[in-house]
Amino acid sequence: MRANTDTTIRLATGKILAAFSVTEDIKKIRISHRQTAECALPGQFINIKTSDSLFPLLRRPFSINRTNPAQGWFEILFRVVGAGTNALAQLKIDSDIDFVGPLGNSFSLPDKSQNSVLVAGGLGIAPLEFLAQKLTEEKLSAHLFWGNQSSEAFSYQKQFSRLNLKTFFATDDGSLGFRGNVVTLLERELAALKDENICIYACGPNPMLRALQNFAAAKNLTCQVSLETMMACGFGACMGCNVEKADGSGYFYVCQDGPVFDIKEIRIYG
């Protein structure tokens, strides 16, 4: 993991350039803010004030999903689940958007000899797509394993055409790709690949990460994982975003020590 040694963290105002609906409840927003587009790294996030009202009061953290430094914009991808994301989904084109960022550390890119394997569960695709963008820019290819509950979200895969990705999909209901969870699919495909020199990057719900943690440990594979959690400030003051260290010696903080962690160093529940 690359530590955030950046001094460019700021309270910023961007402008919403475009908004897209991937499905009824999955949205993508394009935000114009040149400095963020230029300096953000894969794995980093921003903390958005989604409304001016007192509820929701706190900011909401979102992974940076894609950047376009030349045009000075970046995108976030999210599911509408509560008051914060609902307010965000209501924002109109051209409205201002108040955010703090870019925050947190970032994924360490693989050695040239390593093959990157991206493992996403649901909206865990958000930071991994940005990583895939960077790998593509570096002329590196990657395998993407993406699991979803149903096939609906896969309409999003057209976004991958600009990326150097070989894709493997899984659905819980078998409506698209492999029927079952994405880690089982990963195990099966990696056995076929017979490639030991891989570097796994993952983001998704805790049960998926837990399964991946066991798999990576059993196969002695390196795995960087991006965590999502509740937080208030996003820059180390509130201490609300703790995650337990694997050795039991205390806590890391997702906003500062993460959100990207070596999967061996943390305890994952659920």
Binding site: P56, L57, M230, C238, G250
Partner: peptide, 23 residues
């Protein structure tokens, strides 16, 4: 002090709950 286990914060109407535990 390491502080309390996760989750330590929750948002409520016009406010928030915290249980950091003097970390």
């Amino acid at each position: 002090r390491a502080g309390n286990p996760h989750p330590r914060i929750a948002e409520t109407s016009a406010g928030m709950l915290n249980s950091i535990g003097l970390a």
